[in-house]
Design a protein around this nucleic acid. Structure first.
Lengths: 208, 208
DNA sequence: TTCTTCATGTAATTAGTTACATGATTGA
DNA sequence: TCAATCATGTAACTAATTACATGAAGAA
């Protein structure tokens, strides 16, 4: 019985507070989903494994005749979580971005298809950014937002997520702008512009 | 027999030029890996499926007694690729970023662990950025770089990848800087700084 | 001669997804 | 009384990974 990163993702949630699996599933959709997407069925399966491993415990109560199981972390669970945090990251940030496939294979289709893909990226991320901004202002609004006391840590995450969203938006936007100018350009002009992009745009590297 | 996005990723490569699976695997590692990582075994399995579907053909030649199979796209393959490009993107950009889990669960471990995670992120992306910058200057250097004639499309991808790498680097850097100041701050100061971050930092939204 | 690269896989496993099933409770 | 939400799953599948196997050719 070995724990996966998914297990620790759930275990960490239980460390924050006890949840029913239903609440947990909703919270995953609300938050972790942005950088650690998993199917609901996983969320329902994982706590049972944690209980089996002694890292969580389940308390059944009843609302009327409907059972409701609250999962909470055990001392052993806290210890396991702490130990996991001591281990090095198991996998570097991993991106899966179908739109970039569309981009590099765009010469085999119509340029309108490329534009459609870029619109798709922009629209989708704009929606996500709206939702995300809501979540974040929820968390920091005065009053007892659920995880106020972890603000110093969570703000690092929110900083990343907003920056990342902004990056996607900006990239889609400037790419669309670029593509829109192609019809008025000769193939040579287009090529020259492309090549010179990377004479200008050197990656700025910081000294360490 | 339905094709997955992975299938089209390979099919697109074949549209660029013919490859042996070995070369293809290397090329995937070199390029697509940054935004569409797949195990080698997948790369070896996929062309056979494409051949079975009539979208690619295999030509066996011999170097001495060693067989060498070159895969190339068929007209039907070009058609299928074109049609795929007409379809909407099947999945939005998907990020899997374990470091953010470490960040939000950091209150349950030592702050040194958080710093280690952030270092890990920064070091890893710095390495990647070096490799990536090399690849890119390779592609645009005068002479017959393999995909020069697709420069106008490829530069959009490179723009994204560099921006994304830079984002990871910058985020890790500024987060490290922030964490390094914690030891000299009271818990209240840390909390206040965190909360005020998101009064200042509103996501800039563009009008559409 | 020995190491590396070229070249192509298979076997076993597993993590994870999709789609569906069920029924109770709450609010309009 | 009807829809939405609460609450918890299971069955079937499949895409994908890990780890290993094999052997020839070319370079040092």
């Amino acid at each position: 019985m070995t724990l996966t990163t998914t297990s620790y993702a759930i275990l960490g949630q239980l460390a924050l507070k006890p949840w029913t699996m239903y609440e947990l599933a909703a919270e995953m959709r609300r938050n972790l989903h942005f950088f650690f997407a998993r199917a609901e069925s996983q969320v329902y399966a994982e706590p049972k494994r944690l209980v089996a491993a002694g890292l969580a415990k389940a308390e059944v109560e009843r609302i009327g005749s409907r059972p409701r199981t609250e999962y909470s972390i055990t001392p052993a669970g806290r210890k396991a979580l702490k130990e996991w945090l001591e281990t090095p990251i198991s996998k570097p940030a991993q991106l899966e971005f179908e739109a970039l496939l569309r981009v590099i294979y765009a010469p085999f289709g119509r340029d309108e298809c490329l534009e459609a893909s870029l619109h798709n990226v922009r629209d989708h991320i704009d929606e996500t950014l709206l939702v995300l901004a809501d979540r974040i202002s929820d968390e920091y609004k005065e009053g007892r937002a659920p995880f106020q006391r972890y603000a110093q840590y969570r703000c690092l995450m929110h900083d990343f997520l907003l920056s990342y969203g902004q990056l996607l938006h900006d990239w889609a936007e400037r790419s669309l702008e670029r593509v829109s100018r192609w019809p008025d350009m000769t193939p040579e002009e287009r090529h020259t512009e492309a090549v010179t992009t990377f004479h200008r745009r050197r990656p700025r590297r910081k000294k360490r």
